[in-house]
Design a protein around this nucleic acid. Sequence first.
DNA 1: ATTGACATTTACGTTACGTAAAGGTGTATA
DNA 2: TATACACCTTTACGTAACGTAAATGTCAAT
Lengths: 255, 255
Amino acid sequence: MEYTVQKLAKLAGVSARTLRYYDEIGILKPARINSSGYRIYGQKEVNRLQQILFYRELDISLDNIKKILDSPAFDEAAALRDHRKKLLEKRHQIDMLIKNVEKTIAHMEGRIIMSDKEKFQGFKKKMIEENEKKFGKEAREKYGDKAVDKSNEKLMNMTEKEYDELVKLEKEFRETLAEAYKTGEPAGELAQKAADLHRQWLTFYWHQYSKEAHAGLAQMYVDDERFKSYYDAKQPGTAEFLRDAILIYTGIQNR
Amino acid sequence: MEYTVQKLAKLAGVSARTLRYYDEIGILKPARINSSGYRIYGQKEVNRLQQILFYRELDISLDNIKKILDSPAFDEAAALRDHRKKLLEKRHQIDMLIKNVEKTIAHMEGRIIMSDKEKFQGFKKKMIEENEKKFGKEAREKYGDKAVDKSNEKLMNMTEKEYDELVKLEKEFRETLAEAYKTGEPAGELAQKAADLHRQWLTFYWHQYSKEAHAGLAQMYVDDERFKSYYDAKQPGTAEFLRDAILIYTGIQNR
DNA sequence: ATTGACATTTACGTTACGTAAAGGTGTATA
DNA sequence: TATACACCTTTACGTAACGTAAATGTCAAT
């Protein structure tokens, strides 16, 4: 079976321009050119186009697709299984985004207060994963599959447990803070315990903790109406109290 | 809490260039410009950036995101629920691609013979769905949600049953063809029944059946080694026999 | 002989930024 | 006080994967 550009384009659901472009960049050359200069494609090209479209689906660049397909060690079956694996990963990524959206909806309904940092966790995680994809191959070659898989697994597991532990920690923190507030002493033992619980809670969201950032956040709790009203809900002045406790805890003074 | 470009960029996990670009195209303007010309962002901008990144995740163009966010009728909560729905749809689409890959793997292992047409079904369906997305809103406004949903549902259900029925039909067709071949008469009753079963089988893949295309495919069975060897496996000459039967069935003569 | 649907090449436009280049700003330190 | 250094600015060209238009050739049927 032989196809002209238009025929193959219709068959594959792409434009004729795309096929000419693929010819131009050398990723899919026609089987031959007839006497009138027409591109003629055969069965081999149909199959190759299918491969290209499969990989394109994954947002792999045409340049990389070419390298994959032209590699002499290219194993079609292995590539397909790999492709399937990547699709599964992509679905997992979407699941995470869905979680993020649902959390945000919950936030809008006032059930959870999300810090700015937290809001962007979904995207940051995605970026980390994309980095992993980019450098994954090299890492796998250097350290072996097992090491990389384990590292990834750890990340995944952390993500699954994250939320539950988070809720616990936050609850303990809030209770401690409420107790501490009654003493009126931001430098007291209870208030300092609350500040420490707050730090622990924070490290769930911040990959690297710093006293400066912690103190800055404490100040933000006072400055930002959204947070202030959250902490002041039961007892007005709680936001200020928490800030003072954290400033003492971090040893950073207000200016 | 106020942020300069770099601070906000780090917070959100995007580049400073991205923020300047977003300023340039007017999708995210800083809250103010300070005396040195620096861009200063506030809480409102942080929230808007989050929205932008959410939609960007869906491959919605910045231009369209702008339209969505700037629409006076824009309902944040509804947009988020809509966003969630689209993510679920995207996941479903990936599921379909996974099925396609698995089918292809099975094909490579020799269990199924897929026609060129079938190979591209996954992509075609995706295109149809994309079309639906583009024109879905208008259709929903014209015909109401229920009608559109029902139509979509039909498509989905068909996809689920497709494979099982397909296997049955193909089996019946092959058996009938084998019987017909023994008679040696492509114009005979059995051969014509086989041709008809073949047509039924085809209509699963081709959205519009035409005698011409059917006859063309029959000829392809003879010309293409892959198909010829498949049909001729048990009895050499079966491919030719089938072609002749289909040519008679469609009433289209070879030239 | 003409029409209309194909085919060709050349070339500029598009999106969402990356990446210099050339220069101003803010602050900690020698 | 000078300098280093990390930030900020604008201008402008580069990139990927095509879309789109223009100008022109080919093929089959009427």
